[in-house]
């Protein structure tokens, strides 16, 4: 019983957020936009953390600047563009699709394609192979799985 209460109490514990209550805007729509923009901006002294998640002081100041600009009427895009004009593409947490990041975006698909090609070739070879051992392996494997699912 005690353990159960303890476990349930843990569910109530709120995670620690970097964004402090006093930083938040009164207007919930603007605040939601601020969170959205902040999540896409990388903290410049951390390696892989957004300014929304970071406790670094510069991240705190960047969050406040994002909010100040939102209140002044900037669009989300204008704020991101401003940060990129100061810190470069590094400040985007999600890299843009461009020449230097092409391998990042297309790499996984290329590897998948290559892998499928290799698997396809091997399956085809195995099926066409006159080698009895290979063919037997395949038959055994397929009957094996067949028997396990009645």
């Amino acid at each position: 019983m005690r353990r159960l209460v303890f476990a349930l109490a843990l569910l109530l514990a709120a995670p620690a957020f970097a964004v402090q209550p006093y930083e938040m805007l009164k207007d919930p729509v603007l605040e939601a936009r601020a969170r959205d923009v902040s999540k896409g901006l990388r903290c410049v002294v951390c390696q892989n953390e957004s300014i929304d998640d970071s406790d670094a002081e510069i991240a705190h100041d960047m969050r406040l600047l994002v909010r100040e600009r939102l209140v002044a009427g900037d669009t989300n895009q204008q704020i991101v563009d401003y940060m990129v004009s100061r810190y470069g593409d590094y400040v985007r947490l999600k890299p843009r699709l461009m020449g230097s990041t092409l391998i990042l975006w297309l790499g996984p698909f290329l590897i998948l394609l290559l892998g499928s090609f290799v698997v396809f070739r091997r399956m085809k070879e195995a099926l066409e192979s006159p080698d009895l051992t290979t063919a037997a392996d395949i038959t055994v494997a397929s009957t094996d799985s067949g028997e396990k699912t009645p």
């Binding site: 002294v45 002081e57 510069i58 100041d61 960047m62 600047l65 940060m83 100061r86 810190y87 470069g88």
Partner: peptide
């Protein structure tokens, strides 16, 4: 005090 100029100069540290 609030990094306005630092951010404008792209200063990180």
């Amino acid at each position: 005090p609030n990094s306005k100029a630092a951010i404008a100069f792209g200063v990180a540290q």
